[in-house]
């Protein structure tokens, strides 16, 4: 029956991009970040990422009763993103619980990809933070051991730059930029994150407004209210951008298409809101880091932002009363 012609509504040609190709592109963008994580934390990084990806894909295929475990790649992406937000020495069972929670509570109960309200990876992380806080945001972190793949990283510990101002002073900004500091797997190296971010911008998968609004707001708030503990106010602002999860959040988490606004103004407000709440929590809250909570809160506001920032249509004329 192949001689029948196809009829459809126009347009009759389509871009070659698909949901899967978008997900694969984001996975590729995480490449430098993954590489740095393995470089710094050795096999522990590999284990955490592997467990997270595997359990995320497993949970999704079981829920969907689907044999193809990779599917459209979104579960793998969620798993990897979750791993990026975890400390290098986290026990594997915590990672697994987080990955399953991310997929089930964060995504599938809402009807799967495209329907979820909250960023699944961050739902997973938030649940873990609240459940086993001391293991995830505790004051003592493993010190990275670059190029020692099999090193036992938990032997030597250090504080993350954000955990205390005093410790932060001992770390130079350039080290924070390159990533040779204690921290979560994916948040240490600003360089690698920016590389991925530019690749995503180039491919058109993210809009500059969200990371832009996020980072600029954090920088301004850090400069204004950071107390200038780090040489001067400006470097303190920069420190707040580079240290902790801001870049990871701004480039890979807040830009999650499903859970961020679709309108240009909505995106900008979303980014600025993320930055504001992050800095509120950092400066005044009980948790040292606020990126996760900030993005989740703004996720909740996304439907409202979408509703109230519908762009002005072409040729809109002012109503003359």
């Amino acid at each position: 029956m192949n001689d029948r012609l196809v009829i459809s509504s126009s347009p009759h040609i389509r871009t070659v991009q698909s949901v899967r190709s978008v997900m694969v592109d984001v996975l590729v963008a995480l490449g430098p970040v993954v590489a740095v994580a393995v470089l710094l934390f050795g096999y522990r990084a590999v284990v955490t990422m592997g467990v997270a990806i595997f359990f995320a894909m497993l949970a999704e295929s079981l829920w969907l009763r689907r044999l193809n475990i990779f599917g459209d790649g979104s579960a793998a992406l969620t798993g990897l993103l979750l791993a990026m937000t975890l400390p290098p020495d986290v026990p594997w069972w915590i990672t697994a619980v987080g990955a399953v929670t991310a997929i089930i509570i964060g995504k599938q109960v809402y009807g799967g990809i495209g329907n979820n309200i909250f960023n699944p990876a961050l739902v997973g992380r938030a649940v873990l933070v609240v459940s086993w806080g001391s293991r995830l945001v505790g004051p003592i972190w493993p010190q990275p051991k670059p190029f020692h793949f099999l090193a036992d990283i938990s032997a030597v510990t250090a504080a993350t730059p954000l955990a205390g101002e005093a410790e932060a002073l001992g770390t130079t900004l350039s080290q924070i930029f390159i990533g040779n500091v204690a921290g979560c797997l994916g948040e240490t190296s600003a360089l690698a994150l920016l590389l991925g971010g530019f690749w995503l911008l180039y491919k058109g998968h993210i809009d500059w407004r969200i990371p832009g609004g996020f980072i600029v707001t954090v920088f301004l708030m850090g400069t204004a209210f950071g107390g200038g503990f780090y040489n001067n106010s400006l470097t303190t602002g920069l420190f707040h951008v580079l240290a902790g999860g801001v870049l990871l959040g701004a480039i890979f988490m807040a830009t999650d298409m499903v859970t961020s606004p679709v309108t240009p103004w909505g995106k900008l407000i979303f980014g600025v809101g993320c930055g504001l709440i992050t800095m509120l929590i950092r400066l005044f809250g009980a948790y040292p880091e606020g990126v996760t909570f900030a993005i989740l809160t703004m996720n909740a506001l996304t439907p409202l932002l979408d509703k109230f920032t519908i762009p002005k249509k072409f040729g809109e004329v002012k109503q003359v009363a």
């Binding site: 990809i113 495209g114 329907n115 961020s260 679709v262 995106k267 519908i310 762009p311 002005k312 072409f314």
Partner: peptide, 20 residues
């Protein structure tokens, strides 16, 4: 498939609508 809210349609619409 399901809309993943990537907003490409919003960016591409010459009439400045929100197609999705």
């Amino acid at each position: 498939g399901t809309c993943i809210r990537c907003a490409r349609c919003v960016d591409s619409c010459p009439m400045n609508l929100v197609p999705t």
